[in-house]
């Protein structure tokens, strides 16, 4: 029995890799790849007649395997299936860090899951509120209701878009410039930031198109995503490289935070650093850069 520490609602989640909970060969050593989170899947990866077997397998994996610092999230079956309630029971009993709600369309969906999780926490003697939630938005309705979904529960740490289903609903296909999902990604990001939760992009499914993958990651970073959903370990490294702040960004952030502290102590509100105007509005961004740099192992200062 491996006791897991209480999950942190906000932590580094650059990479979240999907794993079929029914495949013992995959889940037994999922932590070695170094992704921030693994997503053990009870939903689409598991055939309809193996849902029961996947839960037994998941329970023992959660109880036996030491995943270390890798966060363990479980994707449960949709609320329109006969499976989700037992899925929640096994997640809570096994001590998963969080649950991903598939096909989430409304705040009520989150509240329904939240209530079932609370009930399971009481049933299995788990601290109420321990189990985190995230929602996957897979339909136009989910995107339209994104803010209410993000703000529906104190357990919510983030929201992700699921490209396959969403594009199907929108009658489009992946485009090299990402225009097919630009508005949806943007709306979800605004909703997540407004609600104060994290935001994750969909999977990139063509494993051979590394150039296309890199272009999508660069766009993700430029748009402000916290992380990416992945389907293969070979996709991990590039995300960690691209999402990490550059050396120049770190130095700049350090300079800004230091200068701000000195100037504000001297009663100055706006000033310049390397020829650029800086005021209080720049400080949260600079501090976030430093925290991210520290989390990525690139910075060891004590400014933040």
């Amino acid at each position: 029995m491996i006791p897991r520490p209480k999950p942190e609602r906000f932590r580094l989640r650059r990479t979240m890799m999907f794993m079929n909970a029914q495949k013992p060969g995959l889940i037994k050593d999922a932590y070695i790849y170094g992704c921030d989170s693994i997503m053990l899947d009870l939903e689409d990866a598991v055939a309809e007649n193996q849902k029961d077997a996947a839960r037994f397998s998941l329970y023992h994996a959660l109880k036996t395997i030491d995943y270390g610092d890798t966060e363990v999230i479980v994707r449960i079956n949709g609320l329109d299936t006969p499976h989700w309630q037992e899925d929640i029971r096994v997640c809570v009993a096994g001590g998963a860090d969080g649950i991903r709600i598939a096909k989430c369309e409304s705040a009520q969906d989150v509240k329904t899951v939240d209530a079932a999780v609370t009930e399971a926490e009481k049933e299995f003697g788990v601290e109420v509120g321990r189990t985190l939630l995230m929602a996957a938005l897979e339909s136009p309705k989910g995107i339209m209701n994104a803010y209410e979904i993000c703000a529906a529960s104190d357990r919510m740490f983030g929201v992700a878009i699921s490209g396959g289903d969403f594009r199907k609903c929108m009658q489009t296909k992946p485009q090299p410039d990402g225009v097919d999902m630009l508005v949806a990604r943007g709306q979800m990001l605004i909703a997540a930031r407004a609600a104060g939760v994290q935001c994750f992009d969909t999977v990139f499914t063509n494993l051979d198109d590394m150039a296309g993958y890199e272009a999508e990651l660069r766009q993700n970073k430029a748009m402000g995503f916290d992380g990416k959903s992945l389907i293969n370990p070979k996709q991990i490294r590039l995300v960690h490289e691209l999402f990490a702040p550059t050396e120049k960004e770190i130095l700049q952030a350090e300079k800004i935070v230091r200068a701000y502290r000195e100037q504000s102590a001297a009663g100055v509100g706006v000033f310049t650093v390397d020829g650029k105007m800086i005021d209080i509005a720049f400080i949260p961004g600079a501090e976030r850069t430093l925290k991210l740099a520290r989390a990525c192992g690139l910075w060891e200062g004590d400014l933040v």
Partner: peptide, 12 residues
């Protein structure tokens, strides 16, 4: 299979 997998399969 690891022990945890054997248990899961027998139980199921």
């Amino acid at each position: 299979a690891l022990d945890c997998t054997l248990k899961a399969r027998v139980e199921c």
